[in-house]
């Protein structure tokens, strides 16, 4: 039996335990940040990041990526489109500059990994495996990067070979982030599970577009981009629900979570933890607020642990 005294127990309140165990890593609560919407310096200027269950970084590539041209952002009804193109300085500067800042917080670190080839993914994973980060999240699903027609996130065979290769070179807990831009998300979830992933995160953004009718041009310089925010929540929720019934891996659910109630919906759909993404761009402290709202929900409905938050099905 796993004996763990969660926050609530230590503070002597209601025996409420918000902790979760995600692929062998203990989180003090099920809330993390969605990759790309969190930056340790900037987000840390608003609240104590140690309050979160885990911190998930922006995508890290082997060498520097410049990202796409601007405009990179377009607002949509109840959501937004982005085509940042995973701008980042590369794994070297990440380890030297970002990681020490992340380590200051008392919470697990999840590093999101991007690449254009299997070799590139592997090189980043090798470097990160030498560090004391806690989990890796393979981003096989960013809609803004397309290289030579290779699409790791939409072809189950490609996803399988990538995850299989990465699995061989790291002992770190391995999360794979899935794309919703597929016909059947359970197919790719199964192949990734078979390849040795420890956990799934879903969903990434949905490919979308906006047009400026006065200029007769796409709003985004990249023309298309990833849709996120509350507009995509029902789709994300349905996909978490489907994947839960297809695989046994833990699931980190995300897609338009704005409130504690949204988080509960994902937990009930089958997620083991949740990520807050676009909400952080609108309210930098959203992950903390959502954690507190989830806690209030548990108190109100008398849930003692996150595991108890399940769907009642006939």
């Amino acid at each position: 039996m796993d004996l763990y005294f969660g926050e609530g127990m230590l503070s002597g309140m209601n025996n409420l335990d918000m902790s979760v165990n995600i692929a062998g890593v203990k989180w003090k609560n099920p809330i993390t940040t969605a990759s790309g919407t969190f930056s340790v310096r900037e987000s840390g200027a608003f609240y104590d990041l140690s309050e979160l269950g885990a911190l998930t970084t922006k995508g890290v590539s082997y060498e520097e990526w410049e990202g796409t041209a601007t405009p990179r952002i377009a607002e949509t009804y109840g959501g937004m489109l982005n085509s940042i193109g995973l701008q980042n300085k590369g794994v070297g500067p990440f380890i030297e500059e970002e990681l020490p800042l992340l380590k200051k917080y008392d919470t697990p670190i999840i590093v999101n990994v991007v690449g254009k080839t299997i070799e590139e993914y592997c090189r980043v994973v090798e470097r990160l495996s030498e560090t004391d980060i806690d989990m890796l999240e393979l981003n096989i699903s960013c809609p803004n990067i397309k290289e030579g027609g290779i699409s790791f996130g939409t072809e189950p065979k490609m996803a399988f070979s990538l995850v299989e290769k990465v699995r061989k070179i790291t002992k770190k807990a391995l999360i794979v982030k899935l794309s919703p831009n597929v016909t059947d998300i359970t197919e790719i979830a199964r192949s990734v599970e078979a390849a040795g992933a420890d956990c799934l995160s879903l969903i990434n953004t949905l490919l979308g577009m906006r047009i400026d009718v006065a200029k007769r041009k796409a709003v985004l310089a990249n023309r298309v981009g990833g849709l996120s925010g509350p507009a995509i929540k029902p789709v994300a929720l349905r996909m978490v629900y489907e994947v839960r019934r297809a695989v046994n891996l833990p699931i980190i659910g995300m897609g338009g979570i704005m409130t504690g109630e949204d988080a509960v919906e994902f937990l009930m759909a089958g997620a083991d933890a949740i990520s807050v993404g676009t909400a952080s761009l609108i309210d930098p402290t959203a992950p903390l607020r959502i954690k507190n709202e989830l806690r209030e929900f548990m108190l109100e409905y008398n849930y003692k642990s996150i595991k108890e938050i399940e769907l009642l099905e006939e």
Binding site: G36, T37, F38, S39, R41, E42, S43, A45, F46, K58, E66, G67, T70, P71, R72, I73, A74, M80, N82, I84, Q87, S280, L281, I282, P284
Partner: peptide
């Protein structure tokens, strides 16, 4: 001026290319 996402430095939505000693940066 640039179209911004978060407006506080987290999302990298708004960038401006500048000349630096070691080349062009965003």
């Amino acid at each position: 001026e640039e179209r911004m996402g978060c407006g506080y430095g987290a999302c990298l939505g708004c960038v401006c290319k500048t000349k630096e000693a070691d080349g062009i940066t965003r």
